[in-house]
Design a binder for these strands. Structure first.
Lengths: 144, 144
DNA sequence: CAAAACTAATTGATATATCAAATATGTGCA
DNA sequence: TGCACATATTTGATATATCAATTAGTTTTG
């Protein structure tokens, strides 16, 4: 047996490209003086899309582990990019929202992400990229 | 501004699917009693493809940071799945190879990976998967 | 109403990635 | 030949992910 080629294995190549993209985005953030890590920018974006989520909702919205969200939020709160507010009704919940500083950061992060994406998708058409993303989303659906 | 949608952003979706695949593969390994982590199986596969690499070559062959390779190899050596041998010529190099136990593990890891991949690519044709992988490899090339 | 079941968030343990600096070794050349 | 430069690996510091267990608060129900 063993007709298995690592380079033909989507699970392997996806891992590689995810790591490369993360590195590139961190570099770009550093260059542009955006003081967040690649993993956190998705949280900030989600909160901009929809403020008032609690942590569980944010974890689901980003397909991430809940414990990991807690720790990311601690960092983001320390940087005063988000706020966690207790609301009367249920004292377990922490309602999440961007601070003004957090909101101001979003367009700069978006610019960095687009920069990186442009480099990554060089030589690909818009249609290809869109199709590619549809496939990924189908796979995400399959595993969720 | 702000016509930016997180879900349409390939950088974001790739990160999500990579994390999901890693989780699934770790689950599958656990179920099958394969005692390695998702990140390490690629190293073992590469060494099976080509024994005798040194660490730098292995780092390049897997697009990973060299320091990270060192630490993974320590783990794999402790589990007696790989050997690191000094060769006379250059005492800096550590020549890497699978042990018999490591070789025996490879087909079981491959089976797990194929299992996970089948779940992830449900509803996709072989052609779609192949095309998808070609796009990823193009992106990897763009960023390497 | 009080105990059991449930829910949201946190914490502990373990595993990994990356960059930068340190070690150890080798090579070239002035 | 000895010093500057190059190379291979390791280590330190920092950041993240996941699972399992814990803490704290809420709801259900006998």
């Amino acid at each position: 047996m063993n007709v298995f080629s690592l380079d033909d294995s989507v699970g392997y190549t996806i891992n590689i490209i995810a790591n490369l993209l993360k590195r590139e985005l961190n570099d770009e953030f550093k260059r542009e003086g955006v003081e967040v890590m690649a993993e956190q920018w998705a949280l900030l974006l989600r909160l901009q899309e929809r403020a008032g989520m609690n942590q569980l909702e944010l974890a689901q919205a980003t397909s991430r582990d809940n414990a990991s969200i807690t720790r990311s939020l601690v960092v983001l709160e320390k940087k005063q990019l988000i706020e966690r507010q207790q609301v009367d009704q249920d004292r377990r919940d922490k309602y999440l929202a961007l601070t003004p500083a957090g909101q101001a950061l979003v367009p700069r992060m978006v610019a960095c992400a687009q920069q990186v994406l442009e480099r990554a998708t060089q030589g690909m058409t818009t249609e290809e990229v869109t199709l590619f993303n549809q496939i990924i989303r189908k796979m995400i659906g399959n595993l969720s």
